[in-house]
């Protein structure tokens, strides 16, 4: 079997496994997994910028929030249907990532990290500032009756799981296709050595911009889906914490691997879930995991798997 066929086989297998799981899992884990799949989509988006292109952003919460509020606000105030609301969310994230990319990508390294942090901070503060519409930290509920696409009620757990799976599968396969294509190779080249890539004649800025826009748009789609499936939009999703989470999930699962983000999100979700019997300070666990990862497992779970077992893991 060729490398490409093996890669497709593996990822389609994982999607099939997730599809089958919904019939086996008890209700509690069924609900968890739907949530994990949406959050993992956010992580997949983050991974394209951070894992494959080497852009360490500390502001991806703004794209997630742009998607979420793009959907929630248009549905609440402009009377958009769920489907057009979803589209509005994705378009908001797309436009925001274009604007942020054009500005922030003029900087590199530490400055890029801080600029993205600050743009995200101003998005968060703006949500608070327009509290009259957004209801600030408290947030608002999206009515159950409105959460319907093509006659399918997305607040129903079975439909919700299926919708989350469709979103995750689409983004997973898109990112796989992207990384196999020459475009993805250039992104990896930029991550490994930006100067050399430039010297080889590639337009580094445009590739980075495209990467950030794909990354931001996928993150926004995850945010919009989160609002739609779980019926709530709040400013807490725009805080720094929600910029750190995808970084944590991607590092844990393995930066620069296609299934790493899913593995990391799944692992972290259940780690916090298990330890919540001992402590409610889940950010403490997140902090400890971050430090341990940098000290002992720089490649993350799937990175180690690639190094030791499956060499062709994309």
């Amino acid at each position: 079997m060729s490398k490409g066929a093996k890669q497709w086989g593996l990822h389609l297998g994982i999607i099939a496994l997730l599809f089958v799981l919904q019939f086996i899992l008890p209700a509690y884990h069924h609900g968890n997994l739907a949530r994990i799949m949406v959050l993992a989509t956010f992580a997949i988006g983050y991974n394209i910028a951070f894992g494959y292109t080497g852009l360490l952003s500390l502001g991806h919460a703004m794209f997630f929030a742009a998607g979420m509020y793009g959907l929630a606000l248009t549905m609440k105030f402009l009377g958009f249907s769920a489907a057009t609301g979803l589209l509005a969310g994705i378009v908001s994230a797309f436009v925001l990532s274009l604007a942020v990319g054009l500005l922030a990508l003029r900087t590199i390294g530490v400055a890029f990290m801080i600029v993205t942090l600050m743009f995200a901070q101003s998005v968060y503060l703006s949500i608070l500032y327009f509290g009259k519409y957004t209801r600030g930290d408290e947030g608002f509920v999206i009515q159950q009756a409105d959460r319907v696409i093509a006659g399918i009620d997305l607040s129903n757990p079975v439909n919700r799981y299926f919708a989350a799976l469709v979103l995750l599968s689409f983004c997973l396969l898109v990112s796989l296709k992207l990384i196999q294509a020459p475009f993805g190779r250039v992104l990896i080249a930029i991550r490994e050595n930006e100067e050399r890539t430039k010297m080889l004649g590639y337009d580094v800025f445009r590739h980075k911009l495209a990467s950030l826009m794909i990354s931001g748009t996928i993150s926004g789609a995850a945010g919009a889906a989160y609002g739609l499936l779980f019926g709530y939009a709040g400013a807490s999703f725009a805080t720094v914490q929600y910029s750190i989470f995808p970084l944590l999930w991607v590092l844990l699962g393995g930066a620069g691997t296609i299934i790493g983000p899913l593995a990391g999100t799944l692992f972290m979700f259940y780690l916090i879930d298990l330890l919540s019997e001992i402590t409610s300070a889940y950010m403490l666990i997140a902090g400890v995991v971050l430090v341990l990862l940098t000290l002992f497992a720089r490649q993350g779970i799937m990175g180690e798997v690639r190094k030791r077992v499956i060499r062709w893991l994309p």
Binding site: L284, A286, G287, L290, V291, L293, T294, L295
Partner: peptide, 27 residues
């Protein structure tokens, strides 16, 4: 020191330290 002060790793590690200190004080 064990990270050899690698820029990216130190940023990630100090983010972790941020939350560890903050939550320990909260507790």
């Amino acid at each position: 020191k064990r990270l050899n002060y690698d820029p990216e790793s130190t940023i990630v590690a100090t983010i972790g330290i941020l939350y560890i200190l903050q939550q320990l004080v909260l507790m």
